[in-house]
Amino acid sequence: MTASDLQKAVLALDRATMTSELVKATQTLCGLRNLEAAPTLIKVLGFNNPAVGAVATQGLIALGRDVVPTLLVSLDVGNYGARAWVIRAIATLRDPRGLDLLEHALKADIAPSVRRSATRGLAEMELEGPSFFRDFSRCCEALFKAAADDEWIVRYAAAFGLEQRFCQNSTDTGLRMQAIAHLEQLSSTSEAVKVVQQRAKLALQRLQAE
């Protein structure tokens, strides 16, 4: 019996110790484009090695939205690094099944980079179907919360996100007015960080130019 490519790749990963070996083994695993490699790639995210984590995350994203259910059930809440990568992958895939997770991450995660990724995910998530309006409103409410976050980068992501959410959609004028109000707040001197003001001003210009 010959081992399958997947088994061989998983074995190579188990034997790897140096970062360069781990990266190479992870790249091989990603190259298989096999959904069954996903649990191993998710395990790799917990190694607390940024170089390896970045490769594994790209590999998971390349698997497309079929990987989302696996990502959702395998989130290791105790591992900050792994959590950040999973949130990032789900945000990049723009899959609406990640809404609960991203909403929770933005509300409860102590790591600013996780809240930042979650905010971007809520800004770009592709909503559809009968729950569109409810989900759209949940994304907006979450972005309004992000606009009041203690960390500047989360507020920056909120300014970006409000622009994304309303640059095509003007169905709900109530939410749109709230979004404009939040952006005006972020672009004013009550916002302490200049780059957040700059981004909010740009968002307002783009939204009001329509």
Binding site: S113, A157, F160, K194
Partner: peptide
């Protein structure tokens, strides 16, 4: 990416160049 965003904040705040903000958006 987190650190690149900090670096780009410095660049954006001094240059007022929208190109910097576009790069920051991609890194979020």
């Amino acid at each position: 990416a987190s650190l690149k965003l900090v670096a780009l904040r410095g660049l954006a705040e001094q240059s007022d160049d929208i190109k910097v903000l576009d790069v920051m958006d991609r890194l979020l």
